[in-house]
Amino acid sequence: MTVISDAMTARDKNDIPSRIVPRSKYGTWIAGALVVLFVFLALRSAFANDNFAWPAFGRYLFSESILLGLVRTIELALIAMALSILAGMALAMMRQSSNRVLNAVAGTYIWLFRAVPLLVLLLLLYNLAALYPEISLSVPFGPILFTMETNTVITVAGAAIIGLALHESAYCAEIFRAGLVSVDHGQREAAEALGMSSWLMTRRIVLPQAMRAIVPPLTNQFVSVVKTTSIVSVISMPELLYSAQIIYARTYETIPLLLVVTFWYLVLTAVLTVAQHYVEKRFNRGRAGLSDYTARKLSRLTLEAGK
């Protein structure tokens, strides 16, 4: 210490600057101000423009048929997603299987339903009766157990759910596969060496760890499904969008009703985003949102601080 301060006094004191000035950020300020201005102008135009018809928006926001459509949208998304998760999981495990046939079947399924646009798939299912007028359950090459008309099985709702599930399960399968692959091979070996069966290992060791990699893209997929349900309006399924379309076909209040629909999709997505946060937290046990490296460094630091 003394050596350094002695050396300082020996030198010219004026050599040391009196203040350090941070770099100026005029560019940031100007850009920020411009964005605020544009947002203000856009909002003003929206509220000053009578064509937006905000009173009509308020009138329909909680109207019965809109809320009914909203409930159908939620039901549709939940059922389709639940089926997709189950099918996706099975497909992902088939893809991991050493059985070539299972592997190829899963691969073909994923290729097929990712390739066919959902809109086309829905129209095909909706018109399935033209292809198979009757659906019957029978023993293969044996007697028929019972027969039904296709149109009683594949109703509008049925076609919507089946179409969405077929389409989304192909994507879910890839998400699950990525999750399973992300688990270190050593975890499987350790479980095997402890005498755990394949099923026990998958359920207790591999899946819980794979979930860390699965949950973020899966929630993303769920958000996407909620919005994709609007496509089923083409087969006259009265979900949120089609319910609004029915009204504005009669009243010509197109814009306010589409805004009502937009509003509800925004609410659904916001709710899911909050839910995602909590689900991710649950599956991040053991790393608490930190990378392994950071977590270890931190715990070592707290150890040393405790000494």
């Binding site: 050593g186 975890q187 350790a190």
Partner: peptide, 11 residues
Amino acid sequence: MVFQQFNLFSH
């Protein structure tokens, strides 16, 4: 069995 990379179940 004990492995080089420990292989503790991280969750």
